[in-house]
């Protein structure tokens, strides 16, 4: 119903009232997102390759937005859990209610090897913030199997991957990612 705030638990007059407004959503999944989620739980990242233009979409959408044709499980391909940073944002967490972050951190768009589009909002792990650059090669740090919950709406990678750490490989050349930077 409402949250309590230690600020009002003292002995003085009550001058403010904390009120937690929350909304719960129930989102219906779809077969394409469900299959993607099951593969993630198994430790595999999958996509759909358009049978017409050959572009690989990760996560799979069940259609190619360019050719406007349906894609199905017959078009499924497995993508590497490794790729290159194309763009990133350093976030400074403001300590609002419910904030879990305490220190600056980076979220990146990553172009996975074998995919033609980036996955966004990916946490970079153990990479100094001033060393992040386009073309930096990273690999997935998978969550424990029981913690791999897919986003059933079909966006992103859910909680399957804790983050991405540098592989130590040479940076990818700009020609591999220049079409994917913002």
């Amino acid at each position: 119903m409402t949250d309590t705030d230690p600020q009002v638990a003292d002995d003085g007059p009550v001058r403010f009232m904390p009120q937690l407004i929350s909304l719960d959503y129930t989102v219906r999944t779809n077969p394409v997102a469900a299959a993607f989620g099951e593969a993630l739980a198994d430790g595999r990242i999958t996509g759909h390759r358009c049978p017409s233009c050959s572009l690989v979409f990760v996560p799979p959408k069940g259609f190619c937005p360019i050719c406007t044709i349906e894609t199905t499980s017959a078009d499924e391909v497995v993508i590497e859990d490794r790729g290159m940073v194309t763009a990133w944002t350093v976030l400074t967490p403001i300590q609002y209610h419910g904030q879990q972050e305490r220190k600056d951190y980076a979220l990146a768009s990553i172009l996975l090897v074998g995919a033609d589009g980036t996955v966004g909002q990916q946490r970079l792990i153990d990479i100094p913030l001033d060393e992040i650059r386009p073309g930096l090669m990273v690999e997935a740090v998978w969550a424990a199997p029981e913690d791999r919950v897919a986003d059933d709406r079909g966006y992103g990678l859910g909680t399957a991957i804790d983050g991405w750490k540098a592989t130590g490989e040479p940076d990818a050349p700009a020609s591999e990612y220049e079409g994917h930077t913002l």
């Binding site: 403010f16 009232m17 904390p18 407004i21 929350s22 419910g98």
Partner: peptide, 10 residues
């Protein structure tokens, strides 16, 4: 989604 409001009471 959650939003925590702090309301003045008077």
């Amino acid at each position: 989604m959650e939003l925590l409001y702090r309301r003045s009471l008077g």
